[in-house]
Every structure is written in C-alpha cells, then in structure tokens.
Design a protein around this nucleic acid. Structure first.
Lengths: 338, 338
DNA sequence: CGCAAAATCCGAAACGTTTTGGAAAAACGA
DNA sequence: TCGTTTTTCCAAAACGTTTCGGATTTTGCG
C-alpha cells in the first residue's frame, strides 16, 4: 500500500509538500503539484483515513445507532426508511456512516458512548431507543454531538427530529369522531416512548374538544408489537362490546388488532373502524386497506443527517418537527346506527 | 479524552505497561494491573481505535456495499434483510460495519476499492451490484477479502453466497406444469444479473424435461422493476392470448404483472397463474396472495458475514449455496379446460 | 545589480497506540 | 551468600498523516 512517503521519494520532494499538494494548498508550484498528482495516480495512492483522523482529531464518520435491525422488524421497515434517508444525505458529504446496533451482545458490554468514543465518530444519530434506556442519558451527556429521532432532548450538542404526534393523533381521532363514533378505544405503545405520550395526548384533546368522555379502561398498551396488540385487542373487545372504533399508535399494532377482530367475528370497517399510525408499506396492501397517519420516515432520517452535519460544521443544534398526514383508506366507516 | 499516557502518568508506570495490562498480557503483575484497570475506569478511558488500527494495520471494520438503499426500494426490502443478517452476525464479533452505498455522488468520483482502501476496511461484502459494473472487477482484483452476494466469482480472496436459483426456478415452473399449464411465459430481470441467467436456465430445464416447447417471444425482461414489468406484461398479454401462466424472476415484477392483468381484465389465478421469486413481505399480503420461490435473505447476509470473518481469521474463501423453497399460495391454479 | 518581497519548499513534532529487545528486580536453589 | 532463573517492567521505534515555524529559492523593482 503506497504512502505519502513513497510519493515523496519518487517525486524528490518532502512529505510535507506531497501532503500540501494533495490537499490543494497554495504554497506549492503548479509544476511540482502536477508531478506529485501524476505519481500519486500512477502509484494508485489512497490516503489512509485512519492516520489522517488520528492527527486531525476528526474521523469524518458518523455513528448510526438503531434498534430496529432485527429479523422480526422487516414488516415495520421504519428503521430501514430512516436509514435510507440518513444515507441519502450523508452520501452527498465526505462523511461515512458506521452502523451500531443496540440489542447486540456488544452493547451489553459497552455503552453507546463507549462505542462512539472508541471509533471516534464525529457525531451520532440515535433511533428507536426507549426513553428509559440508561445509556441514552450517557450519550446525551457526553460531548458527542448527536441528534435523536423522536426523543425530545435538547442542548447545545443535541438536537432532535420528530413529527407532530399530538396533532397527527388528533386528526386521526377527529376523523373517527366525524364518522359518528363515540365509543373509541386506543391501542397505545408503551410508557417509554415519547411518541406514545404525545399520541395519547392527541387522543385526549380530540375527545375533549368533542365532549366525548374517555374510557380509561379502553386505553391499553400493545408495546408496539403486532402479537401483543392482538392479544390485548382480543381481551378488550370481548370485555367491552360497545367499542365501535379504535385508534392504534402504530400500523403494526393495527394489523394485530385486525387479526383479533377477525377472530372475534367482527368486521372492519362495518363493525369497528380502525386507524393506524406510520403508514407502513403494508398499510395500503392489507385488506381492508388501513386508514392511517402517515409520517415521512425517509425525510426524518434525511433531516437528522442534515442537522448533524450542520452541527459538525459549527451550527447550532435544532429541533425540526415534520408534518403528518391523515390518509383515509378502507378501514374506517360511519358508525352503524343502533 | 484520556489516553494511555495519562493512565501511565497517574499509575507511575510506562505506557508499555499500561498497554500490556489493558490487553491482558502476562508480563504485568496482578497488583499493577489492578491499579491500572482502576485508574482507567476512573478516568473513563476508551482506547482510540484509530491509533490502534494504524499500528496494527487492521481496522476491525468491514465494508458493506449495497445498492438497494433507495427510497423506491422499500417495497423490495431484500437489501434490508441481508443487511440485518450481516449485522446480526457482526454484532457477535469485535468488528463494526461501515456502510457504503453505490449510486451516490461519492461513488461517481471514487471507485469501490478506493472507498475501501481509504477507510482501511479489513474486508467487504457486496450486494446488489450488476455483473457488468466496471468497479466490480476492480474490487475483486484488489487484495481486499470480499464476499459477493449472488455473483459467482471466486478466488482465494473472494467467496460468494447465493441460492440454488436454477433449482428454485425449476420448481416454480414444474409447479405450473403440474397444474396443467403448457403456455408458460417468463418475466425475467436483465442480462446483467447472474440470478436472471440461472432462473432462465431453470425455466428451460423444467420445460424441456416436460417436453413443452419454449416460446422465445414469451420471455421478456422487466429489469426487476415493478413498473417496467407491468408495461412489458401489458404488451405480452395483449399480443399473445394463449398464455395461461407466467413465471416472474422477482416478486416485485410479479406485482407489476398482476397490475397489468387487472387492467386487461384477466383474473388471477382463474385466467392466468403467476409465480414470483423472493418471497418478499408483500407476497403474502397482496390479493390473491402470491405463490413464490422463497429465499432466506436474512441468512444470505448472515452467511456472507460469517464467511468474511472466517476469511479474515485465515480461513479459505468458500461458496455457500442456500436452498430455496416453493411456497404455494393463491396466485396459481389448474389451467382452465378449453 | 542588489535588496526586499513573494513564492516554494522542508524538518520535525505530533496524534495514540502496539511491539521489540532488553534491563531491572524479585524469587529461587545451592 | 551468590549465581541463575523468572518475573516485571521500560525506552524507543513504528504506523501514515498534518502542521508549525522557518529556510531557501525565485521574482519584482528601482
């Protein structure tokens, strides 16, 4: 592997000059620059980023810390879409991304910030970790610039991008209310997700504004899991037969709920209306197609990457909130009279 | 950021001793080792992998070069699944993965092997690049250990993992033949994919063994794209009304074909049977559910990572071929009499 | 031509590790 | 006690860059 020294030797100049020539500094004559360039090309030279990073004290890599890269998560390719967004932005810069996954054996031994510090990443994007994750605070409190996805923590070194969850949820519930539903349940995620709290709040706001009382026992947690949501829904709908509609905090859980309803012999949307959240790919393919609140996952990743790079260039940490959109499909209908 | 020197100073020993203590060498007394460990913990020390990599001449990172991380590829999360497999295996090792994506602006300027050499990755996994990609040969001819996915090139430094494409395709077509179909078309990918050639061969083998003549004009290329496949299928089925079944080299193209058929007023499977390839998530959710040849994408990634790490430990490059499985759903039926 | 200014170049230190070859200290056996 | 072995430690070089401060050469101008 050819180094800067080899080039220097071949060109009859010092390594300093080679370095400065290759990096486009002004104090090297056009003639020697050309000679150095030619030799570099001829010797098939590639700079050693490790050495460069070591002395420059910046690695030009960002860490991408995701939790959703599991075998079971292919249905809910939320993670993949934000990764694509991140990747898309980063591809336009001179950074590269290094992938860390939580829920690995490695992560049991090393904390997130250890991983980041060891690899000397310049910044990190966090997605999909719970708000009660002990390691979350650690990385946030470290001096590594980071941007969080769907976790509202901010300082001069940490920003976040999220969507207008309360408004999104509100729109979903208002849609149900407009269809005449008054007995509305909610399948929420879990208490350790910011978005769950927000969506719950949206639920309440919509109900309150419509003067419809909220039945607390109709609000259950599905842990963002299709299976758990199915089980919880099964209990819920056997116990409370008045429910005519349910708002789910994720499409995946909505799918679980649909399965439960089918088992119970209840039809969607004739007997009960369902609206989900996320607009995952499957939402438009299941039957009946799922009415849901769409959020642009790709853009979330893209914005996160953009913000992080901005921060690395010296700009301030921000918070960006993306709009959501209610997309009405076939899983919601007017409430039956009676 | 605390370094090994800081620890040495604090412990009153040399950096050599600190290094050896931290790395578990035998020639340091238990007493000083303990002292060093304690100080390291107390100072919140993280080793600088960059410096280590530089001197050790290995970075403990592998490059993951994928092409399918595009916004439009969410439907066909092939890429994501193999990434998950790769990640799953790597998580158990002390390697990390750095993500390169082709079809970026960066890649226009730098070749794959340049990217790899600059970052000093120890090995690389390639997925989704075409066989005529000029950069493919470059990385294969470089001395970087690599494993290819679905590209049959082998040397002492490069292995690959693939599936039994000809057998898989054969099973698919035999399934159609057993249902009585004799007028079978094929929607292939493109000429620059190894799998296309293999699946075409499987198609021929099945037809030949059944003594059913192959109509060459019934074999068209859909470029692995849903839209293009739809257009090609539209032409095909308007021109040749005898066709009663079609084998598609990917599920995504099968979806396109289904759309074309719907436009033409042809029912699946009553009028024409379809079998796809891949078993993407959507396959079981579309209506009618798609009969297809399933390949374990997760395992492909897992095996690729496993092989690469093996190679980095000194073992030989291999080739592993995974089994496929025909999963019969609703899109195939017995041919109509008449 | 001579001198100041501008343009080019270079030596050496630094980044944080690992490793080699050997030195010092401790333990041991007689 | 002394010599020998074993244990424990260390100084220095090396990895491939960048950069500081200064040295050398060229150019410009009167």
């Amino acid at each position: 592997m050819t180094t800067i020294k080899d080039i220097a030797k071949a060109a009859g100049v010092s390594v300093t000059t080679v370095s400065r020539a290759l990096n486009g500094y002004s104090d090297v004559s056009e003639k020697t620059r050309k000679k150095i360039m030619d030799i570099a090309k001829q010797l098939n030279y590639s700079p050693n980023t490790l050495a460069r990073s070591l002395v420059m004290n910046k690695s030009k890599t960002i860490g991408l810390l995701v939790s959703g890269m599991t075998r079971s998560a292919v249905k809910d390719n939320f993670t993949f879409e934000v990764m694509t967004g991140v990747n898309d932005y980063i591809a336009k810069t001179d950074y590269d991304v290094i992938l860390f996954n939580t829920n690995s054996t490695k992560q049991r031994e090393k904390t997130y910030s250890q991983l980041c510090r060891e690899r000397r990443v310049d910044g990190v994007i966090l997605q999909g970790i719970k708000t009660d994750d002990p390691y979350l605070t650690e990385v946030v409190e470290s001096d590594i610039p980071c941007v969080l996805i769907d976790i509202p923590i901010q300082s001069d070194r940490v920003g976040y991008v999220t969507t207008d969850n309360v408004h999104g949820a509100k729109k979903a519930v208002q849609h149900l209310l407009e269809l005449g539903h008054r007995h509305i349940a909610m399948m929420n995620g879990h208490d350790y997700a910011f978005v769950s709290k927000q969506r719950l709040q949206g639920f309440y706001e919509a109900m309150d504004e419509a003067n419809v009382p909220v039945q607390k026992e109709w609000i259950v947690n599905g842990e963002f899991s299709e299976e758990i949501a199915e089980a919880r829904a099964y209990e819920l709908f056997t116990k409370h037969q008045h429910i005519t509609a349910i708002f789910c905090a994720s499409d995946l859980m909505a799918l679980g709920v649909m399965k439960a309803l089918k088992q119970l012999g209840l039809r969607v949307p004739e007997d009960v209306s369902i609206v989900g959240y996320d607009d995952i790919l499957l939402a438009s393919y299941v039957s009946p197609a799922l009415t849901t609140v769409a959020q642009n996952k790709f853009q979330m990743g893209y914005e996160a990457a953009s913000m992080l790079i901005d921060m690395l260039e010296g700009n301030e940490a921000k918070v960006v909130t993306l709009r959501t959109q209610l997309v009405v499909r076939e899983s919601t209908a007017e409430v039956k009279k009676g």
